[in-house]
Simulated scan of single mutants.
Amino acid sequence: MNIQKANIEDHIRLTEITKKSKAYWGYSEEQILAWDNQLTITQDYIEKNPVFNLVDETKIIGYYSYLKLENNQVKLDNLFVLPEYIGKGFGSFLMNDFLERIRNEKYEKVILDSEPNAEQFYQKIGFIKIGEFETSIKNRFMPIMEMKL
């Protein structure tokens, strides 16, 4: 396994990983379609933001991306692995690479909007919940989390 910078040609594969990973949590096909814009990774997105792939030999099996904010902060925008790799340590592998990368870039804080099903994953790593917001699904709330570095 290795992590490498994404190329704009990876956008279709990263979109596929995002949608399959999101569907893993039991969301209907209709819901995934309703979220199509939010779950699509474009060439432009890859060009403008740091995006890193998790590669198993030659196959991309996961990725993360982040947004550079003001005041030495970043927002973890995406962290997804294919469903068959969930629960096997690959999310932690990606997260460790991400945290090491942003520490080396001298960032002081990370924020993220967590998939509700992933909140415990982020808490185990050291993120704390600082708020939440209701999503397009009634009574479904996205935790807002942060970690000071």
Rank of each mutant, 00 (worst) to 15 (best):
M1P: 08
I3G: 06
Q4K: 14
K5P: 02
I8Y: 01
I8C: 00
D10T: 01
I12E: 14
L14A: 13
E16A: 08
T18I: 02
T18W: 03
T18Y: 10
K19W: 01
K19N: 06
Y24K: 02
Y24I: 09
W25Y: 06
G26M: 06
G26P: 11
Y27A: 05
E29Q: 14
E30F: 09
I32W: 01
W35D: 15
N37C: 03
Q38L: 08
T40A: 01
T42L: 11
I46P: 01
E47S: 13
K48E: 14
P50V: 05
F52S: 03
N53C: 15
L54H: 07
L54D: 07
V55I: 15
V55K: 14
D56N: 15
E57H: 06
T58C: 06
K59N: 13
I60P: 00
I60A: 02
I61Y: 03
Y63S: 06
S65E: 02
K68Q: 05
K68M: 09
K68A: 07
N72A: 11
V74F: 00
L79D: 01
L79T: 01
L79Q: 08
F80T: 03
E84R: 05
I86C: 04
G87L: 03
G89K: 11
G89S: 12
G89V: 05
G91I: 04
G91S: 09
L94E: 11
M95E: 11
M95W: 10
F98N: 07
E100H: 10
I102D: 05
N104G: 15
E105M: 14
S114Y: 03
S114I: 09
A118Q: 05
E119L: 04
F121M: 06
F121C: 08
I128D: 04
I128R: 11
I130A: 04
E132W: 05
F133G: 08
T135K: 12
F141I: 12
E146Y: 00
M147A: 01
K148A: 00
